[in-house]
Design a protein around this nucleic acid. Structure first.
Lengths: 190, 190
DNA sequence: TTTCGATTGTGATTTTGATCACAGGTCGCT
DNA sequence: AGCGACCTGTGATCAAAATCACAATCGAAA
């Protein structure tokens, strides 16, 4: 990934100088993943955030062998486990490749040592965190406010790309229903 | 509220100097509320955060006249609507007094003008935001992971004070069930 | 203490989604 | 082309919670 590409991903979050981009890149490692390979394992303490260059990442809980999907991260988007990073407690979440994926791993602790010198990098990381949390909250509000069918329609309207990229079975737990129910919701739709 | 009391509320978030506390206080207004009075109305843009001195605040959506509770904020705790603050879009959430309450209103936009001079105040606000969002997320994860009964037990274990302070009817929508169902869950418990 | 209003408990019924079971379909691999 | 693994669709049944209806209880104010 060149600086220009990185910059295009960071642009929506904050404007960074060349020097700041260079710092970010110096704390990053490119990581190609086969479908199903795990970037963050259950029980690991998270000290990084991830940028997806191609493919997508799936963030999920493993409830007695059953995956419950919490998030999907696509090209140009960032993800992490902030709870684990912040508390330094082992992650309950797993982050893995939903298909063959190229991800970039940014070392947050390493980055944070430079915070005093590069305040814009601090701002960038902070905004990233807040955006992520606000987005997660927005999604989980759906569970209190809407029925399964309404949740599906909401995704259809606001995140239609999800339906293209993720299999029905994967989407089901993200919407908090079984795959059978989601199949029936979709059938009624047409 | 004197500086000492304020400091004791802020302490868990960050250590602040006397000068920084003074700045915070200068951006704050004391606001006594009768039960049911609204601090943040639906449709208002949120530009403040709130500290509860006594009583409690209830944050909820109004779904066609039915309240769906998202959060309860008790003595010594802070709350806000970060989504509205950040996006400058009208708030869908309502924040109101759950009983007679004394709240402090902190003007965030006013405060943020001093961010360059008082970096610790910036850090304080940032941490407050992240804590709030992480807590909100933790609560909403319950909806994907657990059944209504398990959610109730989780609250019983991790937030027992909620059961003392909030009526069954109020708690029901917070747990995503009807009051009848919550009453039955509780009946089985004993 | 009595009364009114709000809150909670509880039964009967209905609705929704989960579970179980299995039949196609699709895709990659050999 | 044929096999096998995985994914999707669909019916039948079951379980859980919503809804509806009303009784019991509690609490504040007269």
């Amino acid at each position: 990934m060149d600086h220009k590409t990185l910059q295009s991903y960071i642009q929506p979050v904050i404007e960074l100088a060349e020097e700041e981009l260079a710092l970010l890149m110096s704390c990053a490692i490119k990581r190609p993943l086969k479908k199903g390979e795990q970037l963050l394992k259950q029980g690991e303490v998270c000290s990084t955030f991830y940028l997806v260059e191609s493919g997508y990442l799936r963030t999920y809980y493993d409830r007695e062998g059953v995956a419950i999907n919490m998030n999907f991260t696509f090209e140009g988007d960032f993800t992490s486990n902030l709870r684990s990073y912040r508390s330094r407690l082992p992650s309950e979440l797993i982050i893995e490749a939903g298909e063959d994926t190229i991800a970039w791993i940014f070392n947050l602790r390493q980055l944070s040592q430079q915070y005093d010198t590069y305040p814009n990098v601090t701002r960038f990381v902070r905004r990233l965190a807040i955006s992520q949390l606000l987005a997660a909250q927005e999604h989980s509000d759906l569970f209190k406010l809407y029925t399964p069918t309404e949740r599906y329609r909401h995704i259809e309207k606001n995140n239609p790309h999800l339906l293209q990229r993720v299999s029905l079975s994967q989407l089901a737990s993200y919407l908090g229903v079984t795959r059978e129910t989601l199949s029936r919701i979709r059938a009624k739709n047409n």
